[in-house]
Amino acid sequence: MTSPNRPRSFQDVILRLQTYWATQGCAVLQPYDMEVGAGTFHPATTLRALGGRSWAAAYVQPSRRPTDGRYGENPNRLQHYYQYQVIIKPSPANLQDLYLGSLRAIGLDPMVHDVRFVEDDWESPTLGAWGLGWEVWCDGMEVSQFTYFQQVGGHDCRPVSGELTYGLERLAMYVLGVEHVMDMPFNDPDAPIPLTYGDIFRQTEREYSRWNFDQADTDTLFQHFKDAEAECARILAADPEDAAGRTIPMAHPAYDQAIKASHIFNLLDARGVISVTERQAYIGRVRALAKACADLFVTTEAAQA
């Protein structure tokens, strides 16, 4: 932990990852501009994992998990947090080594720490996706998820994408030796105006926790869910040929609606208005949307080798 090469702040960790993966040849993308539960939902992963075209991207993705809100009081649970996502297709033979390089880049030297790949198979019922891989442990703490995608949206992944997901807050807290996420320096602690994670997010965590758990209007949300579902289906069913006679299937706009439905479902779940039996049905409805979007995407230009 006393490496001279140690990052000094949360943003330092992010910047090092950005630089590292840029150096490895990834396109450094920006976050997707919608509410999602995880970096995997970004079309740069979900859709681009499909089809034969090679791909390499890395990005930060703000992620929302309404049920994880703890009013900013829990040392490491947040309803809004950041994931760092890397996706490379086809998965290179040295992906594990590349990943370990990224740990070195943020000051975790595998010669001093205990880095382990522990079986953890990944599955997203809402995306109809699964893969095999590991959770990566550093000194007994899970710092990343490492997955070889086998299926997305019900389609076999050929070639296979390798996906890396870092939980940025937890990873950075460990690297920086911080016990409570709100105490973590966001920018450099010696900056003229040093800001902690709490300075930026304590209030929002409180506000969103209240809204997520108590205030979000469930009737409105149920309606939004239906609307998103209907719009998704409408977009998918639209004639691929536009008024000017151009063939433009709209996989991405349809997928946006699937993402939206997924997030609304998460909000309803946090409000506690979805029963155990209904849960499965809702997840099934979102999966149906994601699959239909995947079906359309694989027919488009971006999916061709």
Partner: peptide
């Protein structure tokens, strides 16, 4: 642990202790 380190595992143990 799966490794011998120059600090005889002190960093590793400290990390595990924190997680626990």
């Amino acid at each position: 642990a799966n490794i011998e380190t120059p600090d005889d595992g002190a960093t590793i143990l400290a990390g595990n202790q924190r997680v626990l």
